[in-house]
Amino acid sequence: MSSNWSSMSAPEIAAPMDVRLMNIAALMLGAAACVVSLGLAVRWALAQPMFAISKIVVEGDTSHHNAITLKANVGGRISGNFFTLDLAQARGVFEAVPWVRKATVRREFPNRLRVTLEEHRSSGFWGADSESRMVNHLGEVFEANAGDTEAEELPRFVGAEGASKEVLTMYQQLSKSFQPMDAVIEQLELTGRNGWRLQLDSGTQMELGRGSPAEVMARVDKFLATHKQVLASYQRSGLDRVESVDLRNGEGYAIRLSGVSTLAAAAVEKK
């Protein structure tokens, strides 16, 4: 009788539990060592001088700034290299520079920054005569260097904080009405009682009163349409001969001419 024992393989014997645990631990330690080594290698590579930011390319609105002046303003406030630089923090640093409304900052390998600027477009000064703050074309208040504003022939706007957009909008409407008269608004104020007050380049002071923009503009247009008749009756012409005007009375207006006071009532319109 033949035997089949010779053709059968011996059964595999499982490794003891403690041996298997030691193998797993060895694999984990080896993987951890690889990760640490890789991290050290990456840190070494990132610290190489070739990745340090060495050039800033400036483009966009550069009326008040270029790469040299920007570097002087930014100074050491930007930290990190090409890989570690915080773009949001860098953008905030550039936007803190006077006249810069918005900045876009991009990395350019291996060591450059490209900065695109949008500057404020000034529409007038904001606040008291001693202040150098300005209002841009969107009605936003921004800080400007005093030396950059001395030559600006712009109107001054006065009002409560947060009212700059409202004041600018009213100024734009009023300017259109005064333009045919060759009169320029030097100052426009929104008073604490929500009344409007302006001064022309001729020195004329005008109280426009309160109300909606449409109501204020209606009173102004009424005055501009009738003031020549009033001036003619006193042998005068031109707004430069008017010292002050008060439009707060909806039925008419009070006007002062070189020391002479009179009331121009609604009857003037009937002549």
Rank of each mutant, 00 (worst) to 15 (best):
N4F: 08
A88H: 09
A218I: 00
E269R: 14
T104P: 00
E166A: 14
K271Y: 10
G80R: 08
S132R: 08
S54C: 01
D221Q: 15
G159C: 05
H120M: 01
A214G: 12
I78C: 11
L38W: 15
V220Y: 00
N136G: 01
Q205W: 08
K102I: 00
E161W: 03
G30N: 07
S212I: 01
S54I: 01
L239P: 06
I255M: 14
Q199E: 13
R106C: 07
S2A: 09
S3Y: 08
S164K: 09
F157M: 11
E186H: 02
T62Y: 02
S212N: 04
L208M: 12
R193S: 15
S6V: 05
L21A: 12
M134L: 13
I24A: 13
M28H: 04
I53K: 10
E215H: 10
R256L: 03
A214F: 09
S122Y: 00
G252V: 08
S132L: 03
V268N: 05
R219G: 07
A26L: 13
I13E: 13
E118R: 14
L21I: 05
G39Q: 10
R91A: 05
A225T: 06
L231P: 03
E59C: 12
S7C: 03
V74T: 04
T169P: 00
A151K: 11
S3I: 05
L70C: 09
F94C: 03
H65G: 04
G252C: 11
N111F: 06
Q229D: 12
G159D: 06
E143D: 10
A15G: 08
G252H: 11
I13P: 01
G250P: 03
S7L: 12
E140K: 14
F51W: 07
K165N: 09
M1Y: 06
M1C: 04
D18R: 15
A264C: 02
M206I: 15
L188M: 09
A32S: 15
S202K: 07
K270L: 13
S37L: 14
